[in-house]
Design a protein around this nucleic acid. Structure first.
Length: 472
RNA sequence: GGCGAGUUGGCGGAGUGGUGACGCAGCGGAUUGCAAAUCCGUGUACACGAGUUCGAUUCUCGUACUCGCCUCCA
C-alpha cells in the first residue's frame, strides 16, 4: 500500500517514498513546556500519532523514527518562573511530565526520541557558526541574526514574499538588524536568566534554530517528514528551512500541517472563556479515547470543532461497540484493509471511521475481529476499559452533582431489578413517584450521558434521597 | 493589506465528471410489561453567478460569506 500525503511545500498530495527504502523518519514540533497542554496541542499530537501508527503498521514498528522535541528554554517559561517564583527547571520538568501523561491518556504513543532543547545548545551554537561562516548570519550586539535576504527561497513554504511581509509592517524592527525581516538565532541573556557561553557572549538560542539543530542531530541532514500545526508554517517552519538549507542540509522532504481546532464554533481563547486543557476534560470525566475519537472524526487538514455533542456521540458508539467486542483481543493481522487504505490516503480518518461502522453493521465474527483490530490501530483500546468507570463520573453540561448521580444510579438499579422480577406494581410506583419530583427514570436509563437523557428540569435532591431510603 | 483554507441534507462529516458514503437526530415498522437498547425501512444536500462538457456538487473563472495565519499559540 503506497501512502499518499499532502505536502504543504508543493501544495499537493504525493507518494511517500522513503529516503532509505523501508525506513521512515519524521520530526514534529513539540510543546514549549510552561503549562498544561490545551486541546489544540492535543490535536496535533493525535494527528501525528495517527501517522506514526500508520507508518509502523506499513513499515514495521522498528522501521519508523519519530522525533518530537520539548522546547524548554523560552521567554514564556522565564515569565512563568518570574510570576510564580519557582525554579525554571522545576517548571519545565513538571510540565514535561504533564504533557507525557496527558498525551498518553489520549492514546498517543511516545516518539522514539524526545529531545529537550537545553540538551542541544552546543549543536545549535555550532550550526549558527556554520551559518555565519557561509554568510547567512551575522552577529550584532550580542545577537546573531539570520540574513533572510541571503536565502532566495525564503517564503516559499508559506507562499509569501519578503517584500509583502515587510509591507505588513508587523515585524520587529531592532537597531541591530540589517533588515527588518532578519530573525534571531541567538540572543543575549541577563544574568538571572538561563544562558550558555558562546562566541557571542552568554546567551540563549532562538526558537527556530532549536528544531533545525535537533532534527539534524537525530535524523541527519535529510529526512522524510516534518510536521506541526499550520500556525507554525510561518514563521517557524519557514525559518527552519532557511537555516537548515543554508547550513547545507537537504532537510525535510514532506511538510505536513494540521488545521486548527475550535471549540463550539469559535477559536479557543482565554478571553472567550472556552479555553481548556486536555486535563480539564479528563477531570470532567471525558475519557481520553473519546477526545481522540472526536479528533479523528475530522480530517486533519480541516478546521475541527470540539463540541460536547460530538463527545456524547462518540461515547454512544463505544458503548454500543463494546457489547460485541468483549474478549476480542486485537490482532494486527486483522486490521480492515479499507481502513488502511483510507489512512494511506493522506490520513483520511473520517472515512476510516465510516468503515468501523460498516464492520459493526456486518456483525459477523470476522468483521468484529476486524473492528477490534481496526480500533486498535486508530489508537483506541477495543475493550473500552474506561467506559464503566466513567459512568460513575459526573456528566458534563447537565449540572448533576456526583451525589445526585450516584443516587439516581442506585435508584435505577433497584427499579430495574424489580422490573426484572416482573414486579411491575412496585416498579411503576417508584417510577411514578420519581416523576413526581422531576426525575424520569426511563429517560435516565436511555443514555446516562446522552444529550436528551435527563431533562434539564430541576428535581428534588431531598425527595430523591427519601425515595431511595424507602425502597431500600 | 498579504498569504492560505473552507462553504455538502436538521446536525456532524467523507467523496465523486454521470445510479443520494457514513454517523447522529427525525419519521415509519418489527421486537419488547410500558420505555430503552436492538433490527428493518425511510432523505430529490452539495453557497451564488458564469464558463467548459452530452452531462458538474465534482473542472475553470468570478462573487459573497466564514475561518486561520502574518503577534516565538499546535
Amino acid at each position: 500500500m503506497t501512502i499518499q500525503l499532502y505536502n504543504t511545500a508543493t501544495r499537493s498530495k504525493q507518494e511517500l517514498a522513503p529516503i532509505t527504502p523501508g525506513k521512515v523518519s519524521m520530526y514534529v514540533c513539540g510543546p514549549t513546556v510552561y503549562d498544561r497542554a490545551h486541546l489544540g496541542n492535543a490535536r496535533a499530537v493525535v494527528v501525528f500519532d495517527m501517522l506514526f501508527r500508520l507508518l509502523r503498521h506499513e513499515y514495521g514498528a522498528d522501521a519508523v523514527t519519530y522525533v518530537r522535541n520539548f522546547t524548554d528554554v523560552d521567554d514564556k517559561i522565564n515569565a512563568r518562573a518570574a510570576e510564580t517564583g519557582r525554579d525554571i527547571s522545576d517548571i519545565t520538568a513538571e510540565t514535561t511530565q504533564w504533557f507525557l501523561d496527558d498525551m498518553a491518556a489520549i492514546g498517543a504513543l511516545e516518539p522514539n526520541e524526545m529531545p529537550r532543547a537545553t540538551a542541544y545548545v552546543p549543536h545549535m551554537v555550532k550550526m549558527i557558526e556554520t551559518l555565519i561562516e557561509k554568510g547567512h548570519a551575522y552577529a550584532a550586539e550580542g545577537h546573531v541574526l539570520f540574513k533572510v535576504r541571503s536565502y532566495d527561497d525564503y517564503g516559499k513554504l508559506s507562499g509569501r514574499s519578503v517584500d509583502d511581509m515587510i509591507a505588513g509592517a508587523r515585524v520587529e524592527v531592532a537597531p541591530y538588524k540589517e533588515d527588518p525581516m532578519d530573525f534571531v538565532l541567538w540572543k543575549p541573556s541577563a544574568d538571572d536568566l538561563p544562558g550558555w557561553d558562546s562566541p557571542w557572549g552568554r546567551g540563549r538560542p532562538g526558537w527556530h534554530i532549536e528544531c533545525s539543530a535537533m532534527a539534524y542531530e537525530l535524523l541527519g541532514e535529510r529526512f522524510d517528514i516534518h510536521g506541526g500545526g499550520n500556525d507554525l508554517t510561518f514563521p517557524h517552519h519557514e525559518n527552519e528551512i532557511a537555516q537548515s538549507k543554508c547550513a547545507g542540509h537537504a532537510f525535510a522532504n514532506i511538510w505536513m500541517h494540521n488545521e486548527m481546532l475550535q471549540v463550539e464554533g469559535k477559536k479557543m481563547s482565554k478571553s472567550l472563556g472556552n479555553f481548556f486543557t486536555v486535563r480539564d476534560l479528563l477531570d470532567q470525566g471525558v475519557p481520553g479515547e473519546i477526545i481522540r475519537f472526536v479528533m479523528l472524526s475530522t480530517h486533519y487538514r480541516k478546521p475541527m470543532d470540539w463540541t460536547e455533542r460530538k463527545a456524547a456521540e462518540a461515547r454512544a458508539h463505544f458503548t454500543r461497540w463494546r457489547t460485541g467486542l468483549e474478549n476480542r483481543a486485537p490482532n494486527p493481522a486483522k486490521v480492515d484493509a479499507g481502513i488502511v487504505e483510507a489512512l494511506s490516503n493522506d490520513l483520511n480518518t473520517p472515512l476510516a471511521i465510516a468503515r468501523l461502522h460498516a464492520l459493526w453493521k456486518d456483525g459477523g465474527a470476522d468483521a468484529l475481529d476486524s473492528l477490534a483490530a481496526s480500533l486498535s490501530i486508530l489508537g483506541i483500546d477495543p475493550s473500552f476499559p474506561w467506559l464503566d468507570v466513567d459512568n460513575e463520573e459526573p456528566n458534563y453540561g447537565y449540572g448533576l452533582t456526583a451525589a445526585d448521580r450516584q443516587n439516581i444510579t442506585e435508584l435505577v438499579s433497584i427499579w430495574t431489578s424489580l422490573r426484572d422480577a416482573k414486579n411491575y406494581t412496585d416498579a411503576d410506583s417508584i417510577r411514578t413517584r420519581a416523576l413526581g419530583f422531576g426525575l424520569d427514570l426511563t429517560k435516565w436509563k436511555l443514555s446516562p450521558n446522552g444529550e436528551d437523557s435527563v431533562d434539564p428540569v430541576v428535581f428534588s435532591d431531598t425527595e430523591l434521597a427519601a425515595l431511595l431510603e424507602d425502597v431500600k
